[in-house]
Design a binder for these strands. Structure first.
Lengths: 254, 254
DNA sequence: TCTAAAATTGCATATCACGCAACACTAAGG
DNA sequence: CCTTAGTGTTGCGTGATATGCAATTTTAGA
């Protein structure tokens, strides 16, 4: 059994970056010189190893100070762990939402510049919007996507592909629309993503009053009519408030 | 700018392992032959790269079927993400526990073969057991450690260093003692880790009735006397039950 | 602005990653 | 149980590349 030495060196660096990251009280950036000492190699070798780790997203040159920190790929792995816990916590709430609304209910978070459906409880109705745990949805034309855009301070996408005739494809129109969503406290997908389908979504706040996800319902327009919308809006917003409270949310501090 | 090619190859494998891991519906083990095709190298090279990743804990040969999966180090990164959410959820409960008991209260999980304190709310009393978010504690002689050993089906450590004259250093004695803890539903550190200090701990169950953590209190023996222990035990166990319920725990199914 | 320390880059050479081939292991089918 | 095909591992020699050196660039602090 043999090891590939260059790879081993890179992984040792990754160990150090991980260790520094996992203990917030002991966080520090790691420099080329420090890595050179750790591996007992020349600084130039250390620099190239760090560059390689960076180019693949496993390390990142800190933008504020000298030194390298853990890169986005490891952050994504950490986020997946949180997703599983959060999904399980939110499940009873969206189950109840599905029951009270009669439509499919789901939980969504931001991932890879899209809205990732991390849980989805389908309604028993024969005509329903197709489900999809793990599905990535466009941000600009889905209720969950727009909800996340409005409440999470995300960078607005520039590319707004048309999904239906009703899709908002203008950056300025979307920007204005998101302001409305913030005032209303919920987002409506009015056949913007799927013809014949409407969705509603509302944000989930954590204990520090930061939005971390959203929940929503999807259904066919023949059932989710504009006349019945207020009924659905109330259900979704009640559910999102209860889930937020269960996460320790205590309302916005002035 | 140049990349270290051998390291780059290893990171590409890690990318694949991560990708497979993050979407449970798309999980699959990755074999040497598949890696060889991905990287366009000979199977022997692929094998050596995977072995190197494995020896550093980033990959793991699956024990049930052929192929490699994401290794414990990446799991640990994922766990850290969950820790932050869990820590925040548990905080109000241990805060209340500190208030009602008058002693420092903490949350602990298993990490690196030890008990990791992920949150710690110190009592206002002048004489108290020193705190330490991020501290790793021995499993065999602390209340949180013994609690995790008893309820989480961990491998019993063989090395049981003596911390005080009261430390249990016999494997068989510890094994028997853990059976007692399982029956009682809580663990007591009776000056086994620190002379003049006693700790109590109780397990936290999640929605699938699996123990994922524990909470505990620590205080000086002059306050946490044997006569007052039942009072403290009740507080700790009440708190652990409430926190478990808030996580969706519904009691043990037969 | 200057200086010292940290980080990066080009080049030649020493090291080791690589492919080949042989072998070992495993799972499935007869 | 035996056979076969596919998967994974190991030893060896060679050429590709990782490395150290030295020069250069960048950066942060006085």
């Amino acid at each position: 059994m043999s090891t590939v030495k260059a790879l081993a060196k890179g992984l040792k660096i990754l160990d150090q970056l991980l260790e520094s990251h996992m203990r917030p009280e002991e966080f520090r950036r790691i420099g080329v010189t420090e890595v050179a000492e750790l591996l007992e190699v020349n600084k130039s070798s250390a620099s190239r190893l760090l560059q390689t780790l960076s180019s693949y997203g496993y390390a990142k040159k800190d933008s504020e100070q000298r030194g390298y920190i853990l890169g986005p790929k490891m952050h994504n792995a950490a986020q997946t762990g949180s997703q599983v816990i959060f999904r399980d916590l939110a499940r009873p709430f969206i189950y109840q939402l599905m029951k009270s609304s009669g439509e499919s209910a789901h939980t969504a978070i931001v991932s890879q510049g899209k809205a990732l459906i991390i849980d989805d409880i389908e309604s028993a109705a024969s005509l329903r919007v197709a489900g999809g745990i793990g599905r990535l949805e466009q941000l600009h034309c889905t209720a969950v996507g727009k909800c996340l855009l409005a409440f999470m301070d995300l960078t607005l996408p520039r590319d707004l592909p048309q999904q239906t005739p009703r899709t908002i494809t203008s950056y300025n129109k979307l920007k204005f629309h998101l302001e409305e969503i913030r005032l209303q406290g919920y987002a409506l997908d009015d056949e913007e993503n799927l013809e014949g389908g409407r969705c509603l979504a509302a944000p989930i706040y954590d204990q520090s009053a930061v939005v971390i996800a959203c929940i929503g319902i999807s259904g066919p327009s023949v059932r989710m009519t504009l006349e019945r919308l207020p009924h659905y809006i109330k259900l979704v917003m009640d559910c999102s408030r209860e889930l937020s409270l269960s996460l320790g949310y205590q309302g916005h501090k002035p």
